[in-house]
Simulated assay, not measured.
Amino acid sequence: MNIKTSEFKVPEGIAVDLSRLPTQVEPVYRSKKEYKELLAEQVAALSAQQQLQYADNSHSLLLIFQAMDAAGKDGVIKHVMSGVNPQGCQVFSFKHPSAQELDHDFLWRTTQCLPERGRIGIFNRSYYEEVLIVRVHPEILKNQKLPDSLLNDDAIWPNRYKSIVDFEQHMHRNGTKVIKFFLHLSKDEQRKRFIDRIDQPEKNWKFTIADINERQHWDDYMRAYESCLSATSTECSPWYVVPADDKKNARLIVSQVILDAYKDMDMKYPETSEERRQELLSIREQLIND
């Protein structure tokens, strides 16, 4: 499988125009059968890398997924991470903040969920909601009890971008690699998926009136995403804009991005000293003669 993940990476300092980025590209698989085979290979490779990461115990990996409704975040997480040992991976989904969370800064609730060394953390939505949905619905800021002097529209978003970039650089300096995915779904494909959720009774639970209400703000969300991606994609914590109209292809792209990230971690299994090796051989001899 040949996926050039650099094609989807947002370079640092580049102004993003989502209307110029594809929501669908030529698939890397030729059939459903080949897709399953390729995904199985990727999942097995990820499982091996996560085992090495756990043994090395010096790096953690944080994967952040952001997207419009019905873009397939849950499916990507489910399929791509299906082979990873549950003990080495944690998934957190962030929805409306609680009263306690609103009494802290906007990074507080997610900071508590950062992955430990040797583990993978997955954020299904994240602190980026604070510069996305909050920007589209600025009335949410009223519940965050911020001083009036900080609510200047010209300052609050650049300040939050800076806080996020500084936070991610801090994580990078302490051994946590952050990779961020925006699943780029077309408005037409979202409409089709919403209709599918209505037409299939077993999918009705996935659809709410709130989904339609948010769809009315599509253009506002695209502008918020463009601003966010432009301001917060860095060399150490990059954004990847993944075409999401084809769910299968999106999963293969995401899995390859993660595998490429592992290559940069310089991980290794702990070496065994000669003294320890002799001890193990002695124990082995005892077990044989037991």
Rank of each mutant, 00 (worst) to 15 (best):
Q87G: 02
Q87D: 10
C89I: 15
C89K: 04
V91S: 07
V91W: 14
F94V: 05
P97Y: 03
S98D: 05
Q100K: 14
E101T: 13
L102V: 02
L102F: 14
D105P: 11
F106T: 07
F106Y: 03
L107F: 02
R109M: 10
R109S: 12
R109N: 13
T110A: 04
P115Y: 00
E116C: 05
R117W: 01
R119E: 03
R119P: 11
G121W: 05
G121E: 08
R125Q: 04
S126C: 05
Y128W: 11
E130V: 06
E130C: 06
V131E: 02
I133T: 15
I133C: 03
I133V: 14
R135P: 00
I140D: 01
L141C: 05
L141I: 06
Q144N: 08
L146R: 15
L146V: 14
P147I: 10
L151Y: 08
L151V: 07
N152T: 13
D153S: 13
D154A: 11
W157V: 05
N159E: 08
R160K: 04
R160S: 04
Y161F: 10
S163E: 00
S163F: 02
D166M: 12
D166G: 05
F167C: 08
M171R: 01
M171K: 00
R173N: 15
R173S: 15
N174W: 12
I179P: 11
F181W: 12
L185S: 01
Q190F: 12
R191C: 10
K192M: 03
R193S: 05
R193Y: 04
I195H: 12
E202M: 07
E202C: 06
K203C: 02
K203P: 13
K206W: 14
A210F: 12
D211I: 11
I212E: 13
I212F: 13
E214Y: 13
R215K: 10
D220W: 10
Y221M: 03
